[in-house]
């Protein structure tokens, strides 16, 4: 009796082990594809593979991934992967693109658990479109209610604030990269 259950379990476990080996590559590839998709959504056209030129940067005790986008040898932008825990439903992960002058070229949500129909509206063009072309040096990254320049999502101030938090974190990361580069050039 116990033997029978044991056999069933062993057969099942063995089969799953085999399937796991078969799908492991595809799962890893899917994760890379997702990152690449998010990168190309936020930076101008590039011809390198930013996902393999990944740099890590430590900022305020966190380590962030930065993907440089290049045309030939010229940098055309940087995609910064940031997350914030200030969302309404938990962590929000964003990919934020900057051109070399610090203008935001695009933002894209990688994952979130915000309320469908409320906070999830941050994935709509109406919201994220407002950041394109803005430079955080002059565009204040906080919602209008808090004295900034961001049009918050109706009834989702917390989500909008979290988005602003992530964006300014990304911008600080970008500034760090820039100052590091300037130093190494001198």
């Amino acid at each position: 009796m116990t033997l029978c259950l044991g056999i069933v379990t062993i057969v099942c476990a063995a089969l799953l082990g085999a399937v796991n080996i078969l799908t492991a590559d595809a799962i890893a590839q899917a994760a890379v594809a997702k990152t690449e998709q998010a990168i190309s959504a936020v930076v101008p056209a590039f011809d390198n593979r930013p996902a393999s030129d990944r740099m890590t940067l430590s900022l305020e005790g966190e380590s962030l991934a930065v993907y440089p986008a290049k045309q030939g040898d010229n940098p055309v932008g940087y995609a910064v992967e940031v997350s914030t825990s200030k969302g309404f439903g938990g962590t929000i992960k964003l990919m934020v693109g900057f051109d070399p002058d610090g203008n935001i070229t695009g933002t894209s949500v990688i994952s979130h658990s915000e309320t469908p129909g409320l906070g999830s509206k941050m994935t709509e063009q109406k919201f994220y479109g407002q950041f394109v072309g803005k430079n955080p040096a002059s565009f204040r990254l906080s919602v209008k209610k808090d004295g900034g320049d961001i049009d918050a999502i109706t009834a989702s101030t917390i989500t909008s604030r979290a988005y602003a938090d992530a964006l300014s974190k990304a911008y600080r990361a970008f500034q760090n990269i820039k100052s590091n580069q300037n130093q190494s050039e001198k």
């Binding site: 009796m1 029978c4 259950l5 069933v8 379990t9 399937v19 595809a26 590839q29 899917a30």
Partner: peptide, 28 residues
């Protein structure tokens, strides 16, 4: 006597199979 536990193991295996396949091909 071990009918139900065995069924649960079989079902759980197919669910895991589905999880692996979805992670690979339908991640979103």
């Amino acid at each position: 006597k071990v009918r139900i536990p065995s069924y649960i193991v079989i079902i759980a295996s197919f669910v895991t199979l589905l999880q692996l396949l979805m992670q690979a091909f339908l991640p979103s």
